[in-house]
Simulated assay, not measured.
Amino acid sequence: MKRFIGCLLWVLSVHASAASLNLLTDIHPPLHFQQNGELVGFGVDVVKALAERTGDQVQLQQVPLLRALHMASSEPATAVFTVLRTAERDGQYQWVGPLLDVETALYSADSTQPPVRSLVDAARLGRIAVPRKWLAYSYLQQQGLNNLYGVETPEQMVRLARMGPTEFVVADTLSIATLAREEGLAPDRLQYQMPLMRQGSYIAFSLQTDARQVARWQQALDEMNRDGRLARIKQRWLSDTTPR
């Protein structure tokens, strides 16, 4: 009886503290993307599972990444997923994660290119197409590369690779194959050359969100790690992604 009462009190306490959250994300398959008019993907399944465990109600909204980051930096009960955690962003949000590690790499769009072993090679062997809004673009600028071909979207980047105006593209190892297929390019046309960045991917809550609520989400994620739920979601969405 005491155990039953204890469980009942725990359930009541969870629901008493539950709230409504606005969760923002962009399109980045297989992490989050539209399928038959519905948002699906690894990150979507993770946040839904976390909401189920915390008892929170979540409203998912597709928003361009920069706008989502701005909204999640200033609005209460708001978060954006999945986001790379960087030193510049660290103090602007409350973080839940990591959900997974993400490697961003350089890919060759031309099989006749010599292997790229360093950024010195990358700087002299051809143009590198990369979306301007991506962290990788700023990172490569900071490394002194002046052969960057800034584009608006990853789709435009892969389209340039397919048509020939660029020798290299930049993408994370999880999404490169999907990006290629969606633009009519065989994934093996894009050859892995070298790693550029490796960072954790997180859920970024606004500083105006109740810190106790954010802590509950982190606790729920830790539980998903322990009981294997997070691993099963990774297996569902990420098992067929090949880093190289």
Rank of each mutant, 00 (worst) to 15 (best):
A105L: 11
R232K: 14
L238W: 05
S201N: 09
A105W: 10
Q62N: 06
R67E: 03
S175R: 12
L207G: 10
S118W: 03
A77G: 02
K234W: 03
R85S: 11
D90W: 03
P187N: 00
E103N: 05
L140S: 05
T25W: 06
V44T: 15
E152W: 07
A49D: 14
V102R: 12
L140V: 08
M1A: 15
D188N: 15
V40M: 14
H15N: 09
R226L: 06
T82V: 13
A177H: 11
T25Y: 10
G43C: 08
R67F: 00
R3N: 13
W237L: 08
P195Q: 04
A204R: 01
E103W: 03
Y149S: 10
Q213Y: 02
Y137W: 09
V169S: 05
Q208P: 03
P165E: 12
M224E: 13
A220K: 02
G41K: 01
Q208W: 07
M71R: 08
S239T: 00
W95T: 14
L119N: 10
L24F: 05
S108I: 04
P243T: 05
R162P: 00
V151T: 14
Y139D: 12
L66V: 13
A16C: 13
A19Y: 10
V214N: 02
A177Q: 15
V40I: 14
Q61R: 07
H70E: 11
Q208G: 01
I128K: 05
L9Y: 11
R85E: 06
A109L: 05
I128R: 05
T78Y: 00
K2Y: 06
A220W: 00
G150Q: 13
H15P: 03
M71T: 00
L140H: 03
G6L: 14
S13H: 07
I128D: 04
W134V: 08
E38A: 11
F4P: 02
A123L: 04
Y202P: 04
Q34Y: 13
Q199G: 11
A68V: 05
S20T: 01
S239D: 12
T54P: 13
D227C: 01
V151Y: 02
L174V: 12
E182P: 00
I203A: 09
K234P: 10
L221D: 14
Q141V: 04
E183A: 04
G55Q: 02
W10Y: 06
E183D: 01
D110K: 15
D188P: 06
Q59H: 07
L185A: 00
I5Y: 05
V63D: 08
Y192N: 06
A204T: 12
R85N: 10
P243W: 09
I203K: 02
L174R: 06
L39N: 01
A79Q: 01
F205A: 01
P154R: 10
Q235M: 07
L207R: 15
N225D: 07
L106W: 09
R127G: 00
F33A: 13
Q142I: 07
W237D: 12
V83T: 07
A215N: 05
R132I: 08
G41A: 13
R198E: 15
G164A: 10
Q199R: 05
M197N: 07
E103D: 07
R244G: 13
A68G: 04
